[in-house]
Amino acid sequence: MSTILIAIIVLAVLAAVFGALLGFASVKFHVEGNPIVDQVNDLLPQTQCGQCGYPGCKPYAEAIADGDKINKCPPGGESTIQALADLLGVEPEPLDAEHGAEKDVPLVAVIREDECIGCTKCIQACPVDAILGSAKQMHTVIADECTGCDLCVEPCPVDCIDMVPVTTDKSNWYWQAPTSGVELIATDRRSVPAEGHA
């Protein structure tokens, strides 16, 4: 009888001690956690293009936090899906084609200015206020601010907005990864590389 009692008491004391320890630790080492929505939002490309079906990246981040799929962001593409999967601890899924395909080059909107009639529709459509102009005045895109979401293309009544690839200049050009060399062969391949002259 007394052994059982002792056991119970010991267990209770232990529980109390560890409970107190845990409680202390949770207060002492409390981490001001970045809310999951913000973390998700940080991973999204912030194009605010709405291709995911939500009116912006933040709403989609909220939806993801509420359990929506992570593969609805074409601008982010596979890398974003991978990052989200890592963050949320879920399996990465292939990009949902329903929402569009990943673009291989970043685009920027350009208004053919001589055709612009100044209807301001694109200005209203731009989620990041990257288009300048006023009614009946020619509009122009601030290329640096443009996220390439192409939301302005549709509303344009005269179709004077083009999505063009971002131009490369000295400031954003960089070397390609080397392509020649046996050491690049990661897996067996069909074509036999040329014999070296070693």
Partner: peptide, 12 residues
């Protein structure tokens, strides 16, 4: 079998 250049690698 891996379709690699044989002599190139043997020579290393």
């Amino acid at each position: 079998m891996r379709r690699y250049p044989v002599s190139f690698f043997l020579k290393d």
